[in-house]
Simulated assay, not measured.
Amino acid sequence: MDFNEHTAAQAVQDSFRNTPDARLRDLLDALTRHLHAFVRETKPSIKEWEEAIGFLTAVGQACTDTRQEFVLLSDVLGVSMLVETLNEHEGGTESTVLGPFHMVESPQRALGDTIDLVGEAEPCVVSGRVLDTDGAPLPNAEVDVWQCDENGFYDVQRPGVQPAGNGRGLFHTDTEGRFNFRTVIPSHYPIPTDGPIGRLLEATGRHPYRPAHIHFIVRADGHTPLTTHVFVAGSPYLDSDAVFAVKQSLIVDFTESNDKEAASRNNVQAPFRHAEFDLVLSREADR
Rank of each mutant, 00 (worst) to 15 (best):
L72N: 08
S74F: 11
D75F: 01
D75E: 15
D75C: 06
G78H: 06
V79K: 11
V79F: 15
M81Q: 14
L82G: 13
V83C: 09
V83L: 14
E84H: 07
E88V: 00
G91M: 03
T93K: 07
T93W: 08
E94N: 01
E94L: 07
E94S: 04
T96E: 00
T96F: 00
T96H: 00
V97P: 03
P100D: 03
F101M: 09
H102L: 10
V104Y: 03
V104M: 12
E105I: 08
E105G: 06
S106L: 11
S106K: 12
P107N: 07
Q108N: 11
A110S: 14
A110W: 04
A110I: 08
L111E: 10
L111A: 11
G112M: 02
G112E: 05
G112N: 01
D113P: 01
D113E: 07
T114V: 02
T114H: 01
I115R: 00
D116E: 05
L117N: 02
L117S: 02
L117R: 06
V118E: 00
A121Y: 15
E122W: 09
E122K: 10
P123D: 11
C124W: 02
C124K: 04
C124T: 12
V125A: 14
V126C: 10
V126S: 10
S127F: 04
S127V: 04
S127R: 13
G128D: 13
L131P: 07
D134F: 09
D134K: 13
D134W: 09
L138H: 08
P139L: 04
P139S: 03
